[in-house]
Simulated assay, not measured.
Amino acid sequence: MIKSIFFDVDGTLLSFKTHAMSEKTKEALEEARKKGIKLFIATGRSPKTFEIVKKTLGFEFDGYVMLNGQYCVVEDKVIHSMALPKESLESIIPYLEKEKISCEFVELDYMYTNFVNERVLELRKFLGSTFKPTPIEDPRRSLENETYQLCAYINEDEEKDYFENMPKCRAVRWNKLFVDVIPSEGGKGVGIKKMIDYLGISQEETMAFGDGGNDIEMLEFVKIGVAMGNAGDNVKKSADYVTESVDDEGIYKALKKFEII
């Protein structure tokens, strides 16, 4: 029996076309909650940027797995927190400057960019009102402040060289323009495990919805992993079931199919 469901945000709960959650999805979530099912967010976004999304969703979840699993909160209590290693940040900064790579540095309550290029502008246009421009800062700020994630504007061909210069870290990608850089031992699957262990929910009682490359580990970890119809082929292959797209009420239809609602 499913007792908890984890939802990615961008491309899963929120449409990239409307930048909103459909009323049908909201009705489905409310019906699942009435049955006693715990509902969670599992996103790459930080607490700071998620505040914008939270208003857009208009729905209060039972807990939040943020920063791709590096920061987990339930009932206003932090149950898991994992920042990027300082030595990894110290190693990558000269490389960013040498190769002129734009990168966003994500703290819990602050986010900044070393510089803006065309890839950054393209992503901001893609995300629309769910993302606000970040200030320009010296990346060496990260050596003094806890940094949980980097958003490095590199393509797949550039990943190998990048991570040779940033040990103890790895990439999770949901967009061709950039990768989320997280600790090697992190990820949404890890964050979900921390959450269910804390709440006393078994892995057999979990379900998740996602559409991006950063959702693959999550979909493989839970009992029922559902890929959205708008997900990439690699995401669909990792799922137990592929539903319709976010713009065709994929969440509602999958919850009906599995008799969750």
Rank of each mutant, 00 (worst) to 15 (best):
L219S: 11
V190Y: 10
I182A: 03
Q149G: 02
G229D: 13
E164C: 00
W174G: 14
K176V: 12
Q203I: 14
I216M: 13
G186D: 09
K193F: 01
V181N: 08
D157R: 11
C151H: 01
F209P: 12
L177C: 01
D161P: 00
A208I: 08
E220Q: 15
R173K: 14
Y198K: 15
A231S: 15
Y198V: 01
A152Q: 04
V190K: 14
M195E: 10
C151T: 01
E220M: 12
I154E: 07
G210N: 11
I224Y: 15
M228F: 04
A171H: 13
A208N: 07
N230G: 07
K188V: 07
M166S: 04
A227L: 07
S142R: 00
E244K: 15
V172R: 05
K160T: 13
Q149I: 01
I224Q: 03
N155P: 00
D157K: 15
E158H: 01
F221S: 04
K194Y: 07
I224S: 00
I182V: 14
F221A: 12
N155G: 11
G210C: 11
E205Y: 10
E164V: 00
D240H: 14
K237I: 03
D233P: 00
G229T: 13
E146P: 02
N234Y: 10
I201F: 11
E144A: 13
K194R: 14
C151S: 10
N165L: 05
D215F: 06
Q149A: 12
A239T: 13
Y153G: 03
Q203M: 11
A239N: 07
V181R: 04
R140F: 09
G210I: 10
M218K: 06
K168F: 14
N214T: 09
Y162E: 07
V222W: 04
E244Q: 12
G225K: 08
M166N: 09
S142F: 00
K223H: 14
I182L: 09
F163V: 13
Y153D: 02
W174R: 06
T206P: 09
D197N: 15
N155F: 05
T243N: 03
L150M: 02
D211W: 05
F163T: 10
V179A: 12
I201Y: 08
L199V: 02
I196T: 04
R141F: 08
E205S: 10
T206K: 10
V242E: 12
K188S: 05
T147P: 01
D215G: 07
A152I: 01
E217F: 01
N155V: 07
C169A: 14
I154M: 11
Y198L: 05
M195I: 11
E244G: 00
